[in-house]
Design a protein around this nucleic acid. Sequence first.
DNA 1: GAATTTAATTGATACAGATCAACCCACATG
DNA 2: CATGTGGGTTGATCTGTATCAATTAAATTC
Lengths: 232, 232
Amino acid sequence: MRPNDLSEIHTLTLFKKMDENNFAAIIQAAYLQNFPAQVQLANEGDDADFLFFVIEGCVELFAAANGREATMAMVGPSESFILAAVLKDAPYLMSARTTEKSRVLMIPAQNIRDAFEKDEAFARTIILELAECYRTVIKDYKNLKLRTAVERLANRLLEFHCEQEETGVIELPYDKKRLAALLGMTPENLSRAFLTLKPYGVIVRGSKITLNDMKGLITLAKPNQLIDRHTK
Amino acid sequence: MRPNDLSEIHTLTLFKKMDENNFAAIIQAAYLQNFPAQVQLANEGDDADFLFFVIEGCVELFAAANGREATMAMVGPSESFILAAVLKDAPYLMSARTTEKSRVLMIPAQNIRDAFEKDEAFARTIILELAECYRTVIKDYKNLKLRTAVERLANRLLEFHCEQEETGVIELPYDKKRLAALLGMTPENLSRAFLTLKPYGVIVRGSKITLNDMKGLITLAKPNQLIDRHTK
DNA sequence: GAATTTAATTGATACAGATCAACCCACATG
DNA sequence: CATGTGGGTTGATCTGTATCAATTAAATTC
């Protein structure tokens, strides 16, 4: 592991306040790996062997049952995934795959559990991280239960706009197929949802989306502090 | 507070391993109250003033937006709710109301946060509780995304059957309106879903449901360890 | 740069579930 | 005992979204 990587990892919220020795022990046991796109990193139902962090790239969390598949979340740089399964030493509830070339930090679950036993500050940090994860899922769940497909798309566009430069033009961070799955709809429906948003100034050209009528779009989307990340 | 109540509260998973003094301090500040049905205990968007435990009865967690309302979960005896908001000192993401006459323990949020700072064992217990809550929401989310309304109903019936005596007869723990909302459908649709389940031995008489063809029902429901609580 | 694959769009149709309306039933209230 | 009142069922209709099929566009591979 390069010293550069190391300092970057140390700035992850989960490790910031951790005791140096315990951090060293964790890093000792960890793997930092580059994966191409479409590599499955974890499999729903398997025991939680690793805690993962996306350092660079993007990872899709998904689940399958009854011949259907659902995208649960997209994980970006500096974010961890499947922390709860690791802590409970329980099977993963979701599978994970890279959607693009990605750098991923993998920490053996046992090391995390050991550190959590030994290191009080670490335990406290985990609580806040877990609480945040919990609230994020609740928000996603509300998003799905309380909004139509078009509303979900509109809010997601506003979120992208906020995450990016707020220049009125956004670049989709993954393909439309995945975006559709994340929003809980089919790709065909996403196309039609974009058409529905055209009167609200949403111009689509490939993965570049131009927002020409923010006010109108916001009126339609009705972003909500208790559901969306992008509202301040 | 009666000594009886006190010992019951002490057996709640969250308090079992807690230091006696810290437990005493929390109990000192807590309120144990009886509420009639339909009392709103918490309001989405408000700051988290209290951590709640249902001691007896039942509480509905719900959220509203865009003129719609969605039931998120039903909380039964010995279960807590809105722990994450309390720990993060953030606004509630859900509202809560009693669905029947209920005994509810209310602990001021600040006392919980204090104890969490002081008491290491308590902090560790919280982690496991939070992780469990997180996994429960993920399961609910998967349930909604991966199953049809009829499948959700079938699995919920199996869950009730498991929670109760497994005698082949179950008693709905709350009215059908609420059950429908919890399953993400309208009451009208719930009626029809019950009709769909008739060929699978599901006989409805008021709030008493008889399951005459467990095998058939299970074949239809396809219960799944990674979604349902009732599968062992 | 032609060939192949994969992603995205468009149209036609099917279906699950919502909505609206009428009605029934149980039970509480004056 | 008449009268609400709210929960529940049933039927008719409507709507959002999925599905299927065909086509186009864009990205990969040779």
